[in-house]
Design a protein around this nucleic acid. Sequence first.
DNA 1: CGACGTACTCGACACCGTGTCGAGTACCGT
DNA 2: ACGGTACTCGACACGGTGTCGAGTACGTCG
Lengths: 217, 217
Amino acid sequence: MAAPLPTGPGGSRGRRARRPSGDDRERAILATAEDLLGQRPLADISVDDLARGAGISRPTFYFYFPSKDAVVLALLDRVVEEARESRSAALRRAGDDVRASWRGALEAVRSTFAAHRALTAAAASLLATSAEVRALWAAVMDGFVEETAAAIEAERARGAAPAGPPARDLAVALNWMNERVIHVTYAGQTPALAEDDLVDVLLTVWLRTVYGSDTPR
Amino acid sequence: MAAPLPTGPGGSRGRRARRPSGDDRERAILATAEDLLGQRPLADISVDDLARGAGISRPTFYFYFPSKDAVVLALLDRVVEEARESRSAALRRAGDDVRASWRGALEAVRSTFAAHRALTAAAASLLATSAEVRALWAAVMDGFVEETAAAIEAERARGAAPAGPPARDLAVALNWMNERVIHVTYAGQTPALAEDDLVDVLLTVWLRTVYGSDTPR
DNA sequence: CGACGTACTCGACACCGTGTCGAGTACCGT
DNA sequence: ACGGTACTCGACACGGTGTCGAGTACGTCG
């Protein structure tokens, strides 16, 4: 809807170099997709819908994207970057208060999901069918897991956290828990948590798992 | 493949009452689906494949099931029942050793998933598109959550587990963690755990979350 | 200034999977 | 032997995807 900037110099996932008016078209497709995803599930959106929404014909759509999925992937790319950055930033900030630091990381991920419910729902439906989306998601989760594992190890080295299973294993479990709980909660599935309790509950599980206590230090 | 037994007296999800030869057809479709799901993802299996595999024409397929999804749903029904029972049984068994009891519940769910990888993968892909599958899955998870919450409350009442967030909230988080971690592990996605470490890691998170310690009592 | 190429556009087509309709056939009980 | 019910399938209509090839618009360079 907004995003007047070009995709960026290292646009990576974009199909080809910049082009005068074609750039507008591409953005129009992306914007249409975002818009329609707010109204109905991905499965109910056809390439034709996307093309019409962007003011072009269906064949022309294929000049810009190889498929419907690729559009979602492009959208997802941006959001994923946002999630990564806001999480890393949260961890960087709040250096001394340990509890606040963990909470910040949780909150960062939650708020990114919350800000893009429709898109994440679409992404979830593609996880089953698109290897690219799966790979992207796996990369995101891997990043989170790495960060988390490093933090747990640091806490263990500091003597603040007890030994136990490999830090990475705990990190895998905790991060997938987040992913799923946040997802079901915002997708309106059951059983879920109340949106307001989300972070508190997850934080409790994280702290107890890492420190064995609700009050680290 | 196997399963020479009828669906059972309370076949519930079956479309209509028993029929002489039609029953065989229905089972043949189910068996074909199970078989093909072992070879390729659900999206790559057409109604025609199912029909041919069962030795009938495509229109005839529709006499037995309203759609491809309904076949998976029927398959899922059986497995879900199995999962529920084996989990409840595990909790009933091992009455005094608390740790063993939790471990048994975890192991029950894990082994059911493991025994039906292909089907659960198919189910996962339908979660996005089929409201029925979503409802069935929600019901299963709800059952697990209820059981778990009750167990946590019992431990709190006994004085073995500390207070904290509502038991149900913890139960929601823990059970979705299981679902996702087991799923990614058996679906070969990343980041995942080693199959052999699965239950140990999950058990650690559960115990620390419920008791704040690896060694309850 | 005109000719050329590159970026872009779309009508028409081939294809595939779904779901339905209606005309059957087989077999049961009467 | 007859009527009905369970079952079967050929043929069709439909909706979506992806491609091909014939264009058009426009900047650039001779």
